[in-house]
Design a protein around this nucleic acid. Structure first.
Lengths: 115, 115
DNA sequence: TACATTGGTGTAACTACTTGCAAAAGTATA
DNA sequence: TATACTTTTGCAAGTAGTTACACCAATGTA
């Protein structure tokens, strides 16, 4: 039986936010949904360069649980599932914009240092 | 011989930024340095709740390489090493502030969903 | 004398993340 | 008939991230 490892209670809004947005893909997914509004699963997968369906599904589920992403399935064949941001998710726009702005401003510096 | 796995070239300022800030601790470290200005290693370790010296060192090294963090050692005993943000690092303030603001605004909602 | 202090490093272990591959179902197209 | 399409899951395997623990040096304090 695995030991239950509970997260230390931090009581810090900043760290709690990071816990929700943690991982390699969440910011990129939100960025894409913010830009496109609504996307079908496959289109989202194509838009988030490098992600696998496995990971995308997993991340989307977490984001749903946290009330950031909305999932709308339709009973078609083949299946159609649309993903979009909730009101709460859209309120992350300033965060995404700030990262984007920093990236654009420091693009040259970054390019020189990443290898 | 391990296969050399190169990062796919993305040519996207947003994703490049995420690559630099990736991981569990970088935002928290930057947040702390932004708030305190300059901190000795041990004080920084105490301020970033939950981090180990091992991880802190590793992350600080990466942040130095990317020109975000500045390291200033003094020849004392026991050693004194001060860490602070560079100009470039300080320009991440809008990002940190946006995350902080979102966290404060969504605190109640987060608390209800994280377990 | 015994112990605490600081900024790290090394080793070994462990957990978490991430990937690739195959598969399902019902319709549409070649 | 064969193959593609979409969304999602399961399994196995691999890689990356993270931790714990001990240790160093030289000084200050009890």
């Amino acid at each position: 039986m695995p030991i239950h490892k509970e997260k230390p209670v931090l009581d810090c809004p900043f760290r709690e936010t990071l816990d929700v947005l943690e991982g390699k893909w969440k910011f990129a997914i939100i960025h894409s949904l913010l830009h496109h509004g609504t996307l079908r699963f496959k289109n989202l997968e194509r838009d988030v360069a490098g992600i696998t369906s496995r990971m995308l599904i997993k991340e989307l589920k977490l984001l749903q649980v946290h009330g950031i992403v909305l999932r709308r399935p339709y009973p078609t064949v083949p299946p159609t599932v649309e993903y979009s941001l909730t009101e709460c998710g859209r309120s992350l726009e300033p965060v995404i914009e700030a990262i984007q702005a920093w990236g654009v401003q420091n693009r040259a510096a970054l390019a020189a240092k990443i290898n």
